[in-house]
Amino acid sequence: MNSSDAVREGLIPLLPRLRRLARALAGQVADADDLVQIVLERSLARAAQWRPDAALDKWVFAIARNAWRDELRARGRTQHLFAPEESGEMAADRASAQPAQQLELAMALAALPPDHREVVALVLVEGMSYGEAAELLEVPVGTVTSRLARARATLQAHLGKDA
């Protein structure tokens, strides 16, 4: 099996987690799945760079995070990924299946600065350790913990306000 096939096969069971991570980063279903498509394409294109002794999930999640950052840069909007009038679309995506509080939370997350959103997505949604997140983000562990603490404070304040 060549590296491309190995990566392709490894990606299949990862797809649900990749979509969850993308949803936490990008917010809207459509944006998130567009991000996932880019990640899959890049992962397959760069399959030769993956070393089988490295964890495929972390390798792919790093590609996802970088692709998301690229998207933010391309859009020239670093804070809000979607415009206010589009938030109704997101509400429509989710309203049927989700309690209002979760919708509030998802929107509060989407309003966080990218530095904060990505640590929340990696640690609290994906379940990475601080060390794993730090390695992926190429920052010290202390930076992850301080960003995470500030992100939590923002999200909790938001939820508290609406409760």
Partner: peptide
């Protein structure tokens, strides 16, 4: 907060992936 985030995003794990993916 942690539990709510999981509750908000874990359902994605059970969604069928779009065919294009």
């Amino acid at each position: 907060l942690r539990a709510q985030l999981r509750a908000a995003f874990d359902p994605v794990l059970d969604e069928p992936a779009p065919a294009r993916l």
